[in-house]
Design a protein around this nucleic acid. Structure first.
Lengths: 257, 257
DNA sequence: CCATCTTTGTGCACACGTTCACAAAGACAT
DNA sequence: ATGTCTTTGTGAACGTGTGCACAAAGATGG
């Protein structure tokens, strides 16, 4: 069943590996900084250091774009900025809508990184009628009833979802139906979308949990078998379904929210 | 030179593959939802669908944790919730500090996903003296001068950076010096940290650029060589640096905020 | 106790990503 | 020109992640 999520058999389009694409913005940022300081050229070594990657990887990444370097010298900064921008599609304008103007949505609307680089906040959308008209980051919030019209009128193809988890799938469906084909999802839910629609998710809670895993691992390695890493009694295996919740008290339901 | 970033030669600790670790929170979320609906068991197929992954992958992932399933039946929901929570280190309490209480920091402080799952916001820290004392999400903001004391007094090992890019490395250094060994970075900068410190980054602008890339690709494929995919004149190769700023307008500096 | 049916756990092959290490390209000085 | 020196671009080896496909485990019914 195609949840459409990560399995992108695509990428193979005679093209640039996904891992490389994910690093291009990083290079671009470093290059832009160099450009502002009027640095004319960089070596792969320098640029790699600035972008926090290995220089061999960087050179290989660039090799997918073509041969834009000069041996013995390095890369022309301005030229590379242009080439990467073009490759990423940043030389055109991308109208974006943000759906769900709570704390996070408002923060995103105010975030400068949006306005720059070809992304333009075309509209802010929220389900709360009370918010309609209220300007956030200088843009009036519109009611979700207008979603379809906004998307089609503005030719929006990228949508940002910052609603509560419960509303995300529904909003997603409407965005897709209206013509959006790329979604950036901040809601802690798995979105299912038809083929051809890209979803990327940003999930604070997942990132923290991954950090906690490594943190625990570090702690466990220092004091081997030492501290309170092994704790409270694990619940008995399977109580054969039945009345759920084992004999020895409750499994302290990890997740409240 | 060790930027410490992604190159974690670690993970090899006789342990769980990184890719699997990254999916565990996903499974956990799906399982928690099932648990709340009092579903006693799930098959790998069902759970995989709920988590948006392939069922073979899920089974392999679980096999790294041990054999927690029952053939012919599936997995005991409560038991798995417990095992994954434990593996991720969520059975203990993780005090977290958030540094940089702007729009985003405030949104994070208010985000429910924080409070749940063993993560506790121990303090909010900002450099603006005017904010000191102001409660955000019910927690008074403290001045950055107190950072070291806060970290050590509370035994904080996880820090969240939501400052402007310019301040991020400095804040990072102070956090690390004070004893933080895991950092979640929302600022659009590459952080360099010593070995043994984990950094994960969440970068809105990068995600958007990746989406734009695929979006452009899609548009280019429909109307092969058709539309305005190939546009304006590329800047001449090397202008030998000189007066910066290409012919076609400005390259609008990625990071304003 | 045996047969059947479901679902796990995993060996294997393949795809993708990373890194090394080096030949070839070119700049630059003499 | 010729030689030296720097730095790219990439072939090849390796490591990690994915997915198929199937044997083995166990539940369930007769």
């Amino acid at each position: 069943m195609a949840t459409g999520r990560t399995h992108r058999p695509a990428t193979r389009s005679r093209g640039i590996p996904e891992a490389t694409v994910a690093r291009l913005p990083l290079y671009l940022r470093a290059l832009t900084a160099l450009s502002e300081r009027s640095v004319p050229t960089v070596s792969s070594e320098e640029l790699a250091a600035a972008a926090g990657v290995n220089s061999a990887k960087l050179r290989k990444d660039f090799s997918y774009l073509g041969s834009y370097g000069t041996r013995g010298v390095g890369y022309d900064v301005e030229y590379l900025v242009y080439q990467i921008s073009r490759e990423l599609g940043l030389t055109q304008d991308w109208p974006v809508v943000i759906v769900g103007i709570g704390n996070l949505g408002a923060a995103l609307a105010n975030y400068g990184g949006f306005a720059s680089r070809g992304f333009r906040v075309a509209a802010l959308i929220d389900a709360d009628p009370a918010m309609a008209g209220t300007p956030v980051a200088g843009i009036p919030v519109q009611h979700v009833d207008e979603l379809e019209k906004i998307v089609s009128d503005n030719g929006v193809s990228i949508g940002v979802i910052s609603t509560p988890a419960g509303a995300a799938q529904q909003v997603c469906d409407r965005l897709v139906a209206a013509g959006v084909t790329s979604i950036l999802n901040f809601a802690p839910t798995v979105l299912s979308v038809p083929d051809g629609v890209d979803v990327r998710k940003v999930d604070l809670s997942i990132e923290l949990q991954i950090l906690a895993f490594h943190e625990q691992r570090k702690a466990g390695e220092e004091t081997v078998g030492g501290t309170g890493v092994d704790q409270a009694a694990p619940p008995v295996r399977a109580a054969t379904g039945s009345s759920r919740k084992g004999p020895d008290g409750d499994v302290p339901a990890v997740m409240p929210a």
